[in-house]
């Protein structure tokens, strides 16, 4: 006799809140379309895009990638602590994750200031229009994520922490796709 454990219904399998997943998928579609549009426009002027890309600070963006993936790790630890009912530890991990979110924004702000000092703005070229729109929109999501992590830290239950962390991981997921496409591809 074989042991056939029935697989749970798909909606029961989904971790966290269904509405948060709807939001995550919507955001991924928006950023996904933006990145596809960026690479499509690049086909018309690969040399111009490569030359504009040389003005970007790849090392700073690389550091920001490490900052965000580490922040995501801390948010995941917060979810685990919340599931074990460790409220103080949950808040500690959420605070640490938020702090790294602030570090990301500080580095990003320096990057924008550096571009402004070089006289590079959103209308400088098509590349920089995409650059400012995509990275600026992403930075706005980082700000929203920090606020959400703060709110779930105040109303700390396993469900709220899982939902808040899911939003944060979405921000992380978008960055790991955005970073190579905008900053690294030659």
């Amino acid at each position: 006799m074989t042991d056939t454990t029935p697989e749970a219904h798909p909606l029961e399998q989904l971790p966290g809140d269904l509405m948060m997943w709807v939001l995550i998928v919507s955001e991924l579609l928006v950023f996904g379309a933006g990145l596809a549009a960026f690479l499509s426009v690049r086909i018309t002027d690969p040399a111009g895009f490569a030359s504009a890309q040389d003005h970007l600070h790849r090392a700073a963006a690389g550091i920001n990638t490490l900052v965000l993936v580490t922040s995501g790790f801390l948010a995941a630890l917060a979810v685990r602590a919340a599931e074990h009912g460790r409220i103080a530890r949950t808040r500690m991990w959420l605070s640490a994750a938020s702090l790294l979110g602030v570090v990301f924004l500080v580095i990003k702000t320096f990057e924008f200031i550096e571009k402004a000092q070089q006289g590079i703005g959103i209308e400088t070229s098509t590349f920089f229009t995409f650059y400012y729109l995509m990275t600026g929109f992403h930075a706005a999501h980082v700000v929203a994520g920090i606020v959400i992590l703060g709110l779930v830290g105040i109303r700390c239950t396993p469900r709220t922490v899982e939902v808040g962390a899911a939003f944060w991981h979405m921000v992380d997921l978008v960055w790991v796709l955005l970073f190579p496409v905008i900053y690294l591809l030659r």
Binding site: P10, Q13, G16, A165, D172
Partner: peptide, 19 residues
Amino acid sequence: AKARVILSRYLGLAQAPFW
């Protein structure tokens, strides 16, 4: 590969085979 790791481990989809 990075996106797959985030989906599987950070977002917990490793425990939801269908998704």
